[in-house]
Design a protein around this nucleic acid. Structure first.
Length: 271
DNA sequence: CCAACGTCCTGCGTGC
DNA sequence: TGCACGCAGGACGTTG
């Protein structure tokens, strides 16, 4: 589910609520989320620890503690919901973060997400290997030329590769390519410099608009206060197969690329 | 190194 | 109504 704009929205809301607060304890309900770490290990290292800051890296949520960090990935259907201090164990509860006056319930129907604790000064491989942040200066024409060089795969698939650009997912990849006027099947290494420039600008434009609207709720995504995002009202192509392109009126098409649905306008987006 | 594909899960909509 | 099937904002491991 959540891509960069959704995770960014959630992180900002978690930040408001938790920075400076002490974790009374974390109850682990489903330990498969811990990827081999034990609930005791997590509890021992997080109990009575203060949250210094909450940051986003790609689609990961990172709670920085005094002694280390908790890293959470929400997979497809994960969410953090604010609850009363008791915190309720609902049907798909993964964990409950208890604070003095409230709780955060981590919930995930499909359980594709993960949550782990790491000591200070240690970062796991999946974080280390992440590509550049879309809003950082590291995302520039030269970087993309380097990373796209010799990549024959469809640009749509390459945009989903978290080790190149961190944070893009299936919805925004389609939206960004539409905005760029680039066909999703175009091979990454065939992009001209002007197309790369346009692509970078579109990435930032689409993501910042989506953040402004608190992300996209298609099915499961909820904010920490349980509200929906609003960017679904501004989508141009994702999920719009058969509807008219907002630019030219041609029917939007859906094709499967790399096993994922991809939406585009065959007239506006050039191969 | 890269690419293609299966797998981890539950729930919902569709069509027979 | 019931049931099978396909599909869903992601990522990782295995195979070739």
């Amino acid at each position: 589910m959540p891509e960069l704009p959704e995770v960014e929205t959630i992180v900002r809301e978690l930040e408001e609520r938790t920075v400076g607060k002490i974790i009374i304890n974390i109850d682990i309900v489903r330990k498969s989320y811990l990827r081999g770490q034990s609930p005791q290990y997590i509890r021992r290292n997080t109990q009575n620890k203060k949250i210094i800051e909450v940051i986003r890296r790609g689609k990961y949520i990172i709670f920085e503690l005094e002694n280390g960090r908790i890293i959470v990935h929400l997979g497809m259907t994960g969410k953090f919901i604010e609850a009363n201090s008791a915190g309720d164990v609902l049907k798909h509860t993964i964990a409950i973060f208890r604070f003095e006056d409230f709780s955060l319930v981590l919930n995930d129907v499909r359980r594709f997400g993960q949550m782990r604790y790491f000591e200070k000064d240690y970062l796991p491989d999946n974080i280390v290997k992440l590509g550049v942040e879309p809003f950082s200066e590291e995302l520039n024409i030269k970087y993309i030329q380097d990373r796209f060089n010799n990549r024959k795969r469809a640009i749509k698939e390459v945009l989903l590769d978290q080790t190149i650009i961190a944070g893009l997912g299936n919805v925004y990849a389609s939206e960004i390519l539409f905005k760029s006027g680039i066909h999703p099947l175009k091979s990454a290494d065939s992009l001209k410099i002007e197309e790369i420039n346009l692509l970078i600008r579109s990435i930032r434009l689409v993501l910042s608009e989506a953040i402004k609207h608190n992300g996209t709720t298609i099915a499961d995504y909820r904010r920490v206060d349980d509200k929906l995002g609003q960017f679904q009202d501004f989508l141009t192509v994702y999920g719009k197969e058969g509807e008219r392109c907002v630019r030219c009126g041609t029917k939007v098409e859906r094709i499967v690329i790399g096993g994922r649905s991809s939406f585009y306008c065959g007239n506006c987006q050039k191969l």
